[in-house]
Nucleic acid binder design. Structure first.
Lengths: 333, 333
DNA sequence: CATCGTTGATACAACGTTGTAAAGCGGCCG
DNA sequence: CGGCCGCTTTACAACGTTGTATCAACGATG
């Protein structure tokens, strides 16, 4: 593997001159520049990023810390972050925490100091106060959970409002027993979506019935199916359900189908995340559609700005969302 | 950020002694070891991986190069590779090629030399001959396509046999007009699965009808739906279809449903990859289930062995698969 | 002609780590 | 007591890069 030294020897100049050419320094005699460039391509020189970073103190890597790649929302988001990061010449290191807070912390603690310029974190178990200790100097952008009181850059949609809109849509169909699937003791987003759910019911003058709010400790298809089964087993089953993500909704739809409950006529279903899976499922899912590309772009931009100026005040970017109405809430009653 | 020097100063020993403690060198006086360890935790020392790697010539990173994270199969696989790599203390750099061969080549060419110890590549557009030039010195393990003639480590299932089993299953249901979706001019796996499809038909004495073989240039849900629409528009539509991945199958099922074709009674469907999405779709998908965990583990192990001994003969690991029979081929006729 | 600023090139040190060689310090054997 | 061996520690160099200081050459300016 060719180094600057090799190239310099071949071109008959000093190492630094080659470095200057590589880095676009202006004052290099055309003749020398030409010879260096020739030598560069002759040797197929590639800078040793490790050495460069050691010198510069930057690494060119950012970490993307998220719960699980098998969750389509995160997979889609990861893909978009990869693309956005590429434009900043950043390579992305993906870290799966599988929902355990130890991993979230260890990852940042071990990678943080030297190997990454910053991190984009989609926290699941991580609590607000963890952030202080985990990465004293590491630029971090947080996704999803919106905790305004934290002095950390943050990108996300207005979860309360999004949930409210989703549930209002169900109520607008004439449904009166609207259930929710996805309550969770430790998740900030869950609390916010539940809040939106309550708001929508209150707006419509409907009571919040505890037996219609189903907890889901994970947000996988299985959890949605189990929660739906429980809801349908009740004395007065729901005629609509708002699921806190599309996977829960997919599971709910299946559980309904297995019990002969028809969607949407017997049960209207709304999901969250607008995953492609929901668009193709039978019936296709009405869902809250966050602008994932905007989230990814905003997160990377925010991280770039923080890396360039660590002293700037933390910013909270609110990205848009829309409600995608599909078969799971269309027609029927 | 504390360095070895800081720790050494605090403990009153040389830098190298600290380094020795950190690296588990045996001959350090207990007394010194104790003081060093104290100083280590007092300063919260973290090795600068960049510098370490510069010295060692290893980076602790491996690249996982794959077409797209939004394809559930790749997302699931990526998650498993992440886990397997963790056990080797490797960090994984995920690179999306979006199916363009330039990216596949550029990625390896630019990351290869210095930033990664090796790469696990799931090639899409990449041709066999590209491999020679792209990464002269980089240890590479290839996934999926099985080209025995290449001197490169490789992990995958027997695609021909897997496809044969899948189609034989359809024929076993009494179906006689079995279609295939997923033919592709440049994909090795597509060719192999098509071969298996032909073998199964031949075994059963059925003719291979060109009009029942649908091309799909991408393997997304949309492509499956479009291909199915074409097949169903034919004079004599199929009564069964083998899709080269689950996404195509999901799209095919939807296209069928939109035309009032019932699955499985009018049309039996088999997919490939055993994604969780297929297990929950309505109807749930019969599918070829490769042992993804085994693939991930084998790929990482193989890469580890190649990195440790670059001279060893390339190996081809064949991982097991099974046929997961579900609703899309159960009952009906 | 002396001085100065600009252009162009270079040597050197430094980033933080680890391998190498060597040296200090015992104790043990002859 | 001299020499040798094993344990323990250290100084030094090196990995490949880039910032700083320096130096040389040159034309322009006073």
């Amino acid at each position: 593997m060719a180094t600057l030294k090799d190239v310099a020897a071949l071109a008959g100049v000093s190492v630094k001159t080659v470095s200057n050419v590589v880095n676009g320094y202006a004052f290099v005699k055309p003749e020398n520049r030409r010879r260096v460039e020739e030598a560069l391509s002759a040797t197929g020189y590639r800078p040793n990023l490790g050495a460069r970073n050691l010198r510069r103190g930057r690494t060119g890597f950012v970490a993307l810390v998220l719960p699980e790649l098998v969750v389509p929302y995160f997979a889609e988001l990861a893909g978009l972050v990869l693309g956005a990061a590429q434009e900043h010449e950043w390579n992305v290191l993906i870290e799966q925490t599988l929902g355990t807070r130890e991993v979230e912390r260890d990852t940042l603690a071990s990678l943080g100091p030297h190997m990454i310029d910053g991190a984009i974190v989609s926290p699941e178990a991580l609590q607000a106060r963890d952030f202080g200790e985990l990465a004293p100097g590491i630029p971090v952008v947080m996704l999803g959970e919106h905790s305004v009181d934290l002095p950390i850059d943050h990108v996300g949609i207005d979860n309360v409002e999004a949930a409210r809109v989703a549930v209002a849509h169900l109520i607008g169909l004439g449904r009166t027993r609207v259930a929710a699937i996805g309550a969770h003791p430790h998740r900030g987003t869950a609390a916010q979506r539940l809040e939106g759910y309550r708001l929508a019911l209150a707006d419509a003058g409907l009571p919040v019935r505890d037996e219609l709010v189903a907890t889901a400790l994970n947000y996988h298809r299985r959890d949605g199916a189990e929660a739906m089964a429980r809801l349908l087993g009740a004395a007065e089953p729901p005629d609509a359900v708002f699921c806190f993500n599309d996977l829960l909704a997919v599971g709910a739809v299946r559980a309904a189908a297995e019990r002969g409950v028809r969607v949407p006529s017997d049960l209207a279903v709304v999901g969250f995340d607008n995953t492609e899976e929901g668009a193709y499922s039978l019936p296709s899912l009405t869902t809250v559609a966050p602008d994932k590309a905007a989230i990814a772009r905003a997160a990377v931009d925010l991280l770039r700005r923080r890396v360039d100026d660590p002293e700037r005040a933390p910013e909270h970017v609110r990205t848009p969302f829309s409600l995608e109405v599909r078969e799971s809430t269309r027609g029927g009653a």
